[in-house]
Amino acid sequence: MKAVLDFMGPFTFSVFRFGTGALTLLLLIWVLKAGKPPKHMWKHLIVVGILQTGVVFSFVMYGMQFVDAGKSSVLLYSMPLWSSILAVKLLGETMTRGKITGLVMGMIGLVLILGRDIFFVKDPAIIFGELLIVAAALAWAASNMYYRLKLEGMTQLQVSAYQMLFGTIGILAATVLMEWGEPVRLTGSSIFYILFTGVLASALCFTVWFILLSTIDMVTATLSTLLVPVFGLFFSWWILGEAFTGSIIAGSALVITGIAVAQIFGRETSKGRA
């Protein structure tokens, strides 16, 4: 996602990516004769599409123009922290001591990451990008809650395909508004980035994610996402050559550890649906 910004604007890429993903899934639905979702579910699919695909990835891609890839992955995958907070209100979970401890650690980690840029770097563009990515994490958490409340029972293939389709339409509108007429370079590399993120990271992995949300509890599902910022930090250093300050490393470690503490030590005594 970070590398493709050398070839096109963030919204344009997102249209290519999720358009490719949606077409892949709709073709699969047609081959498998899975049919269309019930009419009363369309409004819920539109909401999830706007949140999960439209808002999350529009905000992330725009923010990544100013924020390094490794830091972006940590900020975006603070999602389980926000999911834990929303689950208390919406899914009836209990806020146990383990969850409170994990949330406090995670929030301190976010303050360490954001605080250095706010108080020392003082670059408005970087701060704006970071806040956009945190907002994306909040939108993703809200999407998870909405899915659990409104869309459980539908086939995950249908949910993934149609929410991605509606989200792509929303991003397309933003692209026309924000990037109309801007150059797009379609090369072997940029086409590979589109296909990799569209077919694998979107069509396949989004479907797997909705399957996880339907078959296992929210705690276990969100815990698995801890690997993303770990690999994000490693690959951004290895492939993109990004350097990390002590505050980023310490803050990232606190966010990841805090999520793990909240999920592992908060799960045995928590009550509710997740």
Score class of each variant (00 low, 15 high):
Ala161Arg: 04
Phe120Gln: 12
Pro80Asp: 10
Leu90Arg: 13
Leu165Trp: 05
Ala69Asn: 12
Tyr146Gly: 04
Ile113Phe: 03
Gly129Arg: 05
Ile133Gly: 07
Phe166Gln: 10
Leu151Asn: 03
Ala125Ser: 14
Lys71Ala: 10
Ile113Tyr: 03
Val74Ile: 14
Gln156Lys: 11
Lys71Asn: 07
Arg148Val: 03
Tyr146Lys: 09
Glu130Gln: 14
Val176His: 12
Gly102Ile: 00
Ala139Glu: 06
Ser72Ala: 15
Ser78Gln: 01
Thr101Val: 07
Ser160Asp: 08
Met95Val: 03
Ile169Pro: 03
Ser78Val: 08
Ala87Gly: 08
Asp123Asn: 14
Met95Trp: 10
Ala135Leu: 15
Ile85Thr: 03
Ser78Cys: 09
Leu151Tyr: 03
Thr168Arg: 00
Leu157Cys: 06
Ala161Leu: 10
Ile108Gly: 05
Leu165Tyr: 06
Gly153Glu: 09
Val134Ala: 01
Leu132His: 01
Val104Gln: 08
Asp68Lys: 14
Met154Pro: 07
Arg97Phe: 08
Ala87Ile: 10
Arg116Pro: 05
Lys122His: 09
Glu130Thr: 01
Ile85Gln: 01
Val74Asn: 05
Leu103Ala: 10
Leu91Cys: 00
Gly170Thr: 11
Gln163Lys: 14
Glu179Lys: 09
Glu179Val: 12
Leu132Val: 05
Met105Ala: 12
Met95His: 04
Phe120Trp: 14
Pro80Gln: 15
Ile118Phe: 15
Met164Val: 10
Pro124Asp: 04
Gly129Asn: 04
Leu172Met: 15
Thr155Trp: 11
Ile113Met: 11
Leu86Glu: 08
Thr96Asn: 10
Ala137Ser: 15
Glu179Thr: 08
Leu157Tyr: 06
Tyr77Gly: 01
Ser160Asn: 03
Leu151Arg: 02
Val111Tyr: 14
Met107Cys: 08
Ile126Glu: 09
Met79Ile: 00
Leu103Gln: 02
Ile171Thr: 06
Arg148Ala: 02
Met145Arg: 08
Gln163Trp: 08
